Amino acid sequence: MRMKILLFLVATILATCHGSSDHGVSFNVFPLRMKTGSGGHYIPDVSCASWTLGVEAHNIINWKTIPEECEGYVGNYMIGQQYRSDSKTVCKQAYFYARSLNLPRDGKNIWVFDIDETSLSNLPYYAEHGFGLELYNDTAFNLWVDRAAAPVLPESLKLYNKLLSLGIKIAFLTGRPLSQKDNTAKNLKLAGFYTWEKLILKEPSTYSGKTAVTYKSAERKKLEEEGYRIIGNIGDQWSDILGTTTGNRTFKLPDPMYYIS
């Protein structure tokens, strides 16, 4: 009798796991096909979510523009809550790491921040240029930079203030040309970044034809030669955090709009 009861219970559980019906309606679970694009439509052979993952994981490199089909997907991500949430997660982990350190109080601890899409957001500009769908236009972008109107990235500003409270100094290291230093400093202060130890911009005559990885590695090396300890390094591009003298730990913010090598 016990065996019959046990077999009945097993059969009941298996039937439940494989689906049940109520008034002839099946409740089997079927695979869902991912929707992508601005209207949630299906894109043949392209998953914009997968493409973005490939970009963030640095599996897709050396691309010039986002896929045409992904303009809506990238735009919705950048202006939506997910981008803010992803940035918050990165910055929180950066702070937790910094807070855990037992650092000497000698004024030589420094954290490297990139600027574009790390400290300042160029989203107003890219919203008018397809969120990365259009090829980069140096003239148009420089006109935007000269306005010094880029809004702050809120989670990065929170991290900046928390690092200062820990006694860690800040170095801004950007690929912007040296000629834009005054407007960049103005924009940073308007956005809430009121103080820094270093504001490093690119000298075109020194780094002409060099990659961002080469340029930023060389400038970080100069910081170390001056006696600074690079406690952390945060940027939106892999070229911000690859190379040499990258710092004790690096943090990558999301940016599916453009790629800099």
Rank of each mutant, 00 (worst) to 15 (best):
G80T: 03
Q81W: 03
Q81K: 14
R84C: 01
R84W: 05
S85R: 13
S85F: 04
S85E: 14
S85T: 14
D86W: 01
D86P: 02
D86I: 00
S87E: 09
K88F: 09
T89M: 11
V90I: 15
V90K: 06
Y95G: 01
Y95F: 12
F96W: 11
F96T: 14
A98C: 04
A98Q: 07
S100V: 00
S100R: 10
L101S: 00
L101E: 06
N102W: 02
N102Q: 07
N102S: 14
N102D: 13
P104C: 01
K108L: 12
I110M: 03
W111F: 15
W111P: 01
V112E: 08
F113S: 08
D114G: 08
D114E: 06
I115W: 02
I115E: 09
E117N: 06
E117M: 05
E117F: 06
S119V: 00
S119W: 07
S119F: 04
L120G: 08
N122V: 10
N122G: 12
P124H: 15
A127P: 01
E128M: 11
H129V: 08
G130W: 01
F131M: 14
F131R: 13
G132N: 03
G132P: 02
E134D: 06
E134N: 08
L135Y: 14
Y136W: 15
N137G: 06
N137M: 08
T139L: 10
A140P: 00
A140I: 07
N142Q: 13
N142R: 15
N142Y: 11
R147M: 13
A148H: 01
A149P: 07
A149K: 09
A150Q: 09
V152E: 11
L153D: 00
L153C: 05
L153W: 01
E155M: 01
L157M: 09
L157C: 07
K158T: 13
K158G: 06
Y160G: 04
Y160K: 05
N161I: 01
L163Y: 01
L163R: 00
L164R: 15
L164T: 09
L164H: 10
S165I: 03
S165Y: 03
L166A: 09
L166I: 04
K169Q: 15
A171G: 02
A171I: 04
A171T: 10
F172Y: 15
F172S: 08
F172L: 11
L173M: 03
T174A: 02
G175R: 09
R176C: 09
R176Q: 14
S179I: 06
S179R: 12
Q180K: 12
Q180Y: 06
K181S: 12
K181W: 08
N183E: 11
T184W: 03
A185L: 07
K186P: 04
K186T: 14
N187I: 00
K189L: 02
L190V: 08
A191D: 04
A191R: 05
A191L: 00
G192S: 11
F193E: 07
Y194R: 15
Y194V: 11
T195M: 09
K198V: 09
K198T: 08
L201K: 07
L201T: 15
K202L: 11
E203K: 15
P204R: 12
P204F: 02
S205Y: 10
T206H: 10
T206Q: 13
Y207G: 02
S208G: 04
S208L: 12
K210D: 06
T211K: 05
T211G: 08
A212V: 11
A212G: 10
A212W: 09
V213H: 06
V213K: 09
V213I: 14
V213M: 12
T214Y: 14
T214R: 11
